[in-house]
Amino acid sequence: MAISKTELADHVADAMKISKTDARGCVNAVIDAFCDALQAGQDVRVQGFGTLKVVQRNARLGRNPSTKEPVPIDACNTVQFKVSQRLKELLPNVK
């Protein structure tokens, strides 16, 4: 089960006792700040939750699962998430 941005905003509205419109604005502002930092090449560290950072993935040779033919996969940037130690302790099955 996933939590949507709307559900997250509803939770923020309830927890902070603010309007859902204001909560949606807060959630969007946080997401925008994360995106801006990642685009600028900065890591995003949320204490007690984890770290987001952009990493370079090397070019590699993949395989088409239906035909088993080799397929070249270009190098690209991707976002990596590393779970904080505190969150690992709360979720014992997370490595």
Rank of each mutant, 00 (worst) to 15 (best):
A2T: 15
S4Y: 08
T6C: 00
T6P: 00
T6Y: 02
A9M: 05
D10Q: 13
D10P: 02
D10S: 12
H11G: 01
H11V: 04
V12A: 04
V12K: 04
A13V: 09
A13M: 03
D14P: 01
K17N: 13
D22H: 10
D22K: 15
A23H: 01
A23P: 01
R24S: 15
C26L: 15
C26V: 15
N28E: 13
N28Y: 00
A29K: 10
V30Y: 01
I31P: 00
I31V: 07
D32Y: 01
A33L: 12
F34D: 06
C35E: 13
C35H: 10
D36F: 11
A37H: 10
A37L: 03
A37S: 13
Q39H: 08
A40Y: 09
Q42R: 14
Q42L: 09
D43A: 13
V44E: 09
R45E: 09
V46F: 13
Q47V: 02
Q47A: 09
G48Y: 05
F49T: 08
F49M: 11
G50Q: 07
G50Y: 03
G50P: 01
T51A: 03
L52H: 02
L52D: 04
K53L: 07
V54T: 11
V55N: 01
V55C: 02
Q56F: 04
Q56K: 12
N58M: 04
N58P: 01
N58R: 11
A59W: 05
A59G: 06
R60E: 05
L61C: 03
L61H: 00
G62A: 05
G62M: 07
R63K: 13
R63L: 04
P65E: 06
S66Y: 06
T67P: 03
T67Q: 10
T67I: 07
K68S: 14
P70R: 10
P70H: 06
P72S: 14
P72G: 06
I73E: 09
I73M: 12
I73A: 05
I73R: 12
A75R: 07
C76D: 05
N77S: 12
T78Q: 03
T78A: 08
V79N: 02
K82D: 14
V83I: 15
V83C: 15
S84H: 06
R86S: 14
L87N: 10
L87Y: 06
K88S: 10
E89K: 15
E89L: 12
L91N: 08
P92S: 07
P92C: 04
V94S: 11
V94F: 05
V94T: 10
K95E: 09
K95P: 07
K95D: 12
